[in-house]
């Protein structure tokens, strides 16, 4: 099945699913509609945004016009909807709000895309991130607890190392899972920061 067919299958006519902060629904004639989940009761009154650049702008800034570099960070703007007749077009619209998120879930669910352990991600870094791989497991847990958990809606599907246990995420009855199969640039930056802080603490500059 193509990704569009998977989407069509997951969202039959007269059904609805949550997807992150989105509310996805499909009306009787087969039209796909997406809005913020805050707006699920007032779909009729929402203004329609159907262009891909227009939807990317919605995802780019929060209600205070602050830049949202991480699209799965909580804080997607509400007050809009988008409607598409085909699953293919609807998927393009979803990718403007949550780039690649649907495809990531499908690939994971099919078993064609395995999560990358955090240590593998950090160990292959170069340049300014080359020391990020020397984090301790405690630091790794700290990143998940203090950076990932409050800052992102995705559920972590990767283990810390290839030997660490990790449970496989399952599809929801009413929602399409929002998953993270590899640590993102924010987690890698945080790893670098923690390693740097630990090094500086252990090697304080000599007093002149």
């Amino acid at each position: 099945m193509t990704l569009a067919e998977e989407l069509e299958d997951l969202l039959p006519a007269n059904e609805a699913r949550f997807f992150g902060e989105l509310y996805l629904s499909r009306i009787e004639d087969g039209t796909f509609v997406a809005s913020h989940r805050n707006d699920m009761e007032i779909l009729e009154s929402l203004s329609t945004v159907d262009s891909l650049p227009g939807l990317r702008e919605i995802a780019k800034f929060d209600a205070n016009n602050e830049y949202r570099p991480l699209k799965t960070a909580p804080g997607l703007k509400d007050g809009w909807k988008t409607a598409a007749a085909s699953a293919d077009e609807f998927l393009k619209r979803l990718d403007c709000i949550y780039p690649g998120l649907f495809a990531t879930w499908i690939a994971y669910h099919r078993g064609t895309h395995d999560p990358t352990p955090l240590r593998d991600t950090l160990d292959r870094q170069t340049g300014m991130y080359r020391f990020a791989g020397s984090i301790t497991d405690q630091m790794a847990n700290e990143i998940m607890r203090d950076t990932c958990s409050p800052g992102c809606l995705r559920k972590i599907a990767w283990p810390i190392s290839s030997e660490s246990p990790v449970s496989r995420l399952k599809p929801g009855m009413k929602s399409i899972p929002v998953i993270c199969t590899e640590a993102c640039t924010f987690a890698v930056s945080e790893a670098r920061k923690l390693v740097k802080e630990a090094y500086e603490k252990a090697n304080p500059p000599a007093e002149s």
């Binding site: 699209k71 949550y98 690649g100 495809a103 990531t104 895309h113 199969t181 590899e182 993102c184 640039t185």
Partner: peptide
């Protein structure tokens, strides 16, 4: 996003 690592899917 999408990151280089995500885009193949």
């Amino acid at each position: 996003e999408p990151s280089f690592r995500q885009v193949w899917s």
